[in-house]
């Protein structure tokens, strides 16, 4: 464990809690993409299959369970809880049909198995790495469509992006400080793609903080 990974994980947890807070406080799901949340749940469930096979640490297991459980709770609130359910606007959340996200990632994961040798857990794990890279896209598109971004929604995406950026620093740190650390280029590639998706958001977020005004995206 290093400081970048720890702070990254905590940013990730903070982002999920901020989204839950937004849903609870405003009783409103406008500006939130259900598709992104469902893709994230698929990412966590596929990646954390090792919860059943390998124990790393209490920290590791608790965080994995929290990510899965809290994301499932967000989805439940958006799908089933009144009045939040009525405020979710599916017509704005249309960018990516889930199957067009899942199918290419599954194909890529299968291809990766040809290179690495087949292992069921690795297949799901690689799939989750590819899927996570694009899971935020529907959310970013919803933001673009609404333009005016609520404070908590803005913070949610900021912390999520910070988590990804800190993981890049974590890999650099690990490669220098861990004897025999194996480079995992699939993870680096997906992680860099994913972080790059946030760059535009970070730019406008920073400008709005600097000016102290409302956060809105350009048309």
């Amino acid at each position: 464990m290093n400081i970048f990974r720890l702070v990254g994980d905590l940013c990730h947890l903070a982002s999920i809690l901020l989204l839950l807070l937004k849903l609870r406080a405003s009783k409103n799901a406008s500006g939130i993409s259900l598709k992104t949340q469902e893709l994230f749940l698929a990412v966590f469930v596929c990646r954390y299959l090792d919860l059943f096979t390998t124990f790393y640490s209490v920290y590791n297991s608790v965080m994995k369970v929290l990510y899965i459980a809290l994301t499932a709770l967000i989805i439940h609130m958006m799908r089933a809880q009144s009045p939040i359910r009525g405020t979710y606007d599916a017509s704005q959340d249309t960018f990516l049909h889930v199957k067009y996200a899942v199918a290419p990632c599954a194909a890529l994961a299968a291809l990766t198995m040809l290179v690495q040798g087949f292992d069921v857990r690795d297949l799901f794990w690689n799939f989750s790495i590819y899927l996570e890279a694009i899971a935020i896209v529907p959310q970013l598109i919803v933001l673009q469509r609404y333009r005016e971004v609520e404070n908590l929604t803005g913070h949610y995406i900021f912390f999520l992006g910070a988590y990804r950026a800190l993981y890049i620093l974590n890999w650099i740190y690990r490669s220098f400080h861990e004897r025999g650390y194996k480079h995992h280029y699939v993870v680096y590639f997906a992680g860099i793609v994913q972080t790059a998706l946030y760059v535009d958001f970070f730019y406008y977020y920073a400008i709005s903080k600097y000016r102290g005004g409302k956060f809105s995206l350009p048309s």
Binding site: N60, Y67, G117, Y167, V187
Partner: peptide, 10 residues
């Protein structure tokens, strides 16, 4: 696991 994937990461 065959790939040495960093499963300890989240």
């Amino acid at each position: 696991s065959s790939s040495d994937a960093p499963h300890d990461e989240l």
